[in-house]
Structures are given as structure tokens and as C-alpha cells.
Design a protein around this nucleic acid. Sequence first.
RNA 1: GCCAGGGUAGCUCAGCGGUAGAGCAGCGCAUUCGUAAUGCGCAGGCCGUGAGUUCGAAUCUCAUCCCUGGCUCCA
Length: 672
Amino acid sequence: MPRIPRAEALLPTRALPAASLPCDGGVGPRRARGRLPRAHVERRPKQPHRRRGPQAPRGPQAMELTQDPQLYRMRHSLAHVLAQAMQRYRPGALLGFGPPVDDGFYYDFILPEPISEDDLPALTKLMEEIVKERQEFHYEDLPAEEALARLRAMGEPHKEEYCRELIEKQGLETIRFYRNGPFVDMCEGPHLEHTGQLPKGCFKLHSIAGAYWRGDERNVQMTRVYGWCFKDRKQLRAYEKAREEAKKRDHRKLGKELDIYVIDAEHVGKGLPLWLPAGAVLCDELEKLAREWEFQEGYERVRTPHLTRGTLYRQSGHLDLYRESMFPGMHLPDEGGERPEDAYYLKPMNCPHHHRVFAARPRSYRDLPLRLAEYGTVYRYERSGTLQGLTRVRGMCMNDAHIYITEDQITSEFVRVMELHRRYYELFGLSGYHMRLSLWDPDDPKGKEKYVDDPENWQKTEDLVRRAMQEVGLPFVEVKGEAAFYGPKIDVQLKTVGLQEFTISTNQLDFAVPPRMGLKYVAPDGSEQVPYCIHRAPLGTHERFVSFLIEHYGGAFPTWLAPVQVRLLPIAERHLDYADKVCAALRADFVRAEVDRSSERFGKKIALGRTRKIPVLLVIGDDEVAQEAVTVNRYGIKEQRTLPVEAFRAQLAREIRARAHAKTWEDIDRLD
RNA sequence: GCCAGGGUAGCUCAGCGGUAGAGCAGCGCAUUCGUAAUGCGCAGGCCGUGAGUUCGAAUCUCAUCCCUGGCUCCA
């Protein structure tokens, strides 16, 4: 049985003048803890010589956290309080990492007895007691060998392992230990002066999760206890409220309420959504948008099959570098061969097919840039635990295109692609996004399995993309180890109302696959050259983009996107004929209009129209029939207007054509 | 795939060893009504699936499938 550290015996202590402690700007994880905040985290520290605490050993950019040093200390200190409570609650608990995070803190343990969420109230109580004790935080720095010896004495093998690494790999000469009350932890700090500085009600333990030691699934799985922590009870409440609000907008909830999609795991399969009519409208409108804008940008559309011989993927490199994400191959009875390339595969990407389109005839430099676009459906094998609503699926339809260019055209074309992004984002009113330049990681131990092995070209293309980004003037962050296997990526990271961050679209500069596939064009001097290829998907996939739009608009779509754009509400049965007539006229304009033929009371018709979030409800009563008019009741706008039918048709047509997101009558008037 | 928690009517959920419940949605009848929910009635469930314990299982045990929150991985 491992001992609980008896700090008094171990530590000569020294009071810590908290105010004088520099707040470390770069340490510690900072990862938002939403449902989806995956990746986006660098594997190793950028500043290798930075002193690092026992927090999760991940990258810097603790922006949000370190903006408020006091909050950082509160969260960091609470992690220690949690660990101390756990050692009381489960004597023998071993420690992993326990860092602050964007909305609180967590601590990883190896427990002699498992716990469940039912144990959280008891743990909370213990923590509150520790807070009441006003335990002071003290630290001391030990020379490397002593530090290791102490951790061994404490019986903390994981801490010891990390300590050894700090010493050996990062060259630290001393290791800092913090003590509060009976609890000692190897930790860099900073901490509060004492636990009494934690206001009552400022934290809440909220979940338990498994987490691999050092984030590597080959390692032991620890039990992670998560807590939220804010400045005071009020701010914690506000945060909890924001989370509840976000939950109401969850696309899985709204998707059900608004009949957008279902996932029928039993009959169809996990991660393979069925788009219901309302959802199909959303996809169709997005495709129409992409078709129009891509046409204007000089793209040409192609179509390619969902099933393809392995030969193609052998050549493209997918069978070597992307196979884990592919559905297993199918061997056909009338085609022999046992090799992987003899099988047929559901396509995981559209690019190899587009490359074959490129190769379908000889190409000249005059053809370039050649922009091939397709809303292509791809299938990827995602592990079951990763699937989630529409945001993580196994079959998805991508707003894909591949642009074949000469080296000289890389920058200008990349700029065009980014401008197109900007145009889309403006249309959807997106502002909370940032660009991420995702780079190859030369130090990744698994790099040979993940990336084409061509350091020179990685370097070159990364520089080119970086330059292009600087040229467009879009701010971006660089992250190692997130590149595609064939080249650097520009991912667009979006923070949603649900407080999660995820990749909404992605663009890559591919230097590797075109040569592998023997793509060539004839240059002005008659020589054969290999094109570069830009992969781009500004609207990502229907699945993810629609899930985002649902949450972004809270299900109240702008008129051009709305599955039902207009619902006509006859006040009494005698108004039905007129309503039908107006509805028919609207449908002749390709407006998605319908008549509420129910025998409900009028108030209920309004209520139902509201809950469906239909942009326009038309009130049809005696007055309207007499005047050949409609009374327009718009979602989110109090004031109603009565307009002649023809005027309404014209106005609606303008709004839809402009793909406007009208929130007031003034917005609509401006379109006239 | 791994850790934790859950699957009861189309949806949201109650019941947690003793004859399956509610609200909403659906259907029928009445109501025809001017801005957020009319009344009455009907129908709807092998309590995820399979095995076990028990006189008796939605309820306890085990397995399995799926969902949710995390971890890992990705658009």
C-alpha cells in the first residue's frame, strides 16, 4: 500500500509570498472542456527549457487561463485540494496530473477502489473542509536526486516518471514541491496563499472520466475527476447557466425537435445519419450555395463513385498512411487477388478520384489552375466511442474541391481560397473562428506511419502556406503534428455557442500525392511538370456544417435556409381557399410554403409555428381576404405588417435571393 | 477501443421485487376561433436484447447492443 505523504516529516517549509510569484504565462493545459474540443493541442512544449509543473504536459497558449492569474491560482490550488480530499476518501490513491483548465481543474488518479459520480458530493464535502482549514501553500525546490528520492518515498511512480523526464529531457536542476496541510505535490505553482482564499461556492465537481496517463492510450487509464471553478458562486452559476443554454441549442436535441435527422443505429448503422426532409433541405441549400459561388470562382464540377479499387489507394498512399480510417476492403468474387489493393474500398477521400480526373487527359499549363469541385460522400471508419450526433460520423458529404496549380500559383490561389472562406463566413455571420496552420511534426515518434517522408518538401510547403496566410492577413496560430499525411493544413477552428471548439473547414497544400500518382502538365517550355494541389473544403461536410448551423442559429434559420419558409395560418375554415391560393403562388416562386389545415384555435397555430421556428407566419382572416393581402408575422420580430400578396412575394423573393439574415423589418426594407 | 453514467409509448420523463404510468405528439368527435397551446374520447410499450436469480423481474446478476460525458483519434 503506497503511503500518503506526511508532509510535515518531509518538508522544511517556507512561506510563499503569493503576490511576488510570477504568473507563468505559458504553462499548463488550457483546453476547453466542451463536448468536442479535440486535438488542437500540441504534443510537446514549445519552449523545452521552460520549467514545467506536474500539469498535463501539453503546450502553452493558456490564454484564457493566464489572463487572470488569481483565477489560475484558485483552479490550480483546487486541484491540490481535490487530490488531498481523494487521498482521504480513497487512501492509497496514486496521483497523475492535476492542472487547471479553461473552466476549472481536474486531477487524475489511480484508485484502489473505483468511484462513481455518486461519490462526488462526499468528495466535495471533504474539499470544503480543507478549504475551511485555511491550509497555507508552501514550496521548496529540491535538487534533482532528492526530488526523485522523495517521490519514490511517497510511492508516486507516475510523478517519479515525469520528474525523471523533467530532469533528463528538459534539464531541470531543481524540482519544486508544494505543500498545503498534509498534502505534498510536485508542482510548479503558482498557488494561493492559503485555501481560505477560495470563496464558498466557487467550485463544483461535475464529472468523472477515464484518461490515459500522459494522454497515450497505450498507458494505464486513470480516473479523472473534473471540477468547474470560477471567481465566486455567482460566476460559477452564470457559467452553469450558459452551459444549460448551450444544451438547449444542442444540434442533437434540436435535430430531433425539428425533424432534421435521425441516426438509426440498429437498422442503418452508427454514425450513418438519415437526413429527414427538413435536413435534406438544409443540405440542398448549402450545395446550391456552393455550386453558385464555386461557379463564379471558376470551379468545374465532377462526380465520382463511392466505391473504388484499392489500386488507386495504393498509389495515392492511403493504403499505407490512412488505412486505419478506412472501412475494410471488399474482395469481389469475380476478381481474384488477395492483396489489399485487389479489394474495393468505400472512399475515405475524394482527392484520388479527382487526381484521376486530372489525369484523364493530357494537361497543359494553360489548364491551370484547374479547379475540380464535388460535394462528394466519403466514408471513414471512426472508432465507436468517437461518434457523436452529426459532428462525428462515419459517412459524410464534403464540400470538396481540388485545385491543380503550378508552384508559382500557390500563393495567389491560396489567397483566393481563403477569400472564399471569408465570404462564406460573412454570409453565416461567423466571427468566433481562428485559422490554424497545422504542421508536420518531425519529432513525432509515429511520424513515419502518419506522414509522407519528405522533410524538404514539408519545409518548403509550410513556408509557402505561411507566406500565403500572411498575405491574406488572416491571423492564425501554428500547431505541430496536425498536418494531413500529404501536406500542411489550414484548419478553421470554430468556437460554437455550445462552448466547444472544432474544425469547421480544412484546406491543405499537397506536394506528395500528385507526384505519387504521376500527375503531369506540359509547361510553356514543353517540359513535363508535376502540379501542386490545394485541397479545400470551406463548408466542411454537410454533417458537421449543418450541426454547427443548427446550434449557431438555435434552429431559427434565416429564410433562405429554413426547411419551411412560410406557413399560412387561416383563422377560420372559410379562409382556407384563399390560403391555398396564396400558398400555391408562393410555391410557384419555389418558396417552401405550407398551409396549417388543422382545426386548432388560432393561438395554437401561432404557438406551433413558433416552436417550429418558421421564419414567416402569414395570418389569413377576413381582412386579408378582402384586401388580397397577408399579415406577416416574422420569427423574432414583434411588429406585424399587412402587405398586398404581390408585395409580399416580391419582398420574400428578394430576401431569399440575397440569402439575407433579416432580424428586423429594417433589414428587410433595406433589401428593397 | 478505453473509463464513468444511462436505455420504460414517436418525444420528455416517473416507477426501481408483486397486474406498466403521466404530459406532449398521433388518431376520432365536438369546436372555426385574430396572435404562445379548446374540450372529450381512443389508440400506442416483450420496460434495448439475451441468459440467469426468484413463487414472481422494468426493478437484482451477468453478457451484449446502443446512447451520453470524458480519454485516444479525426472533417
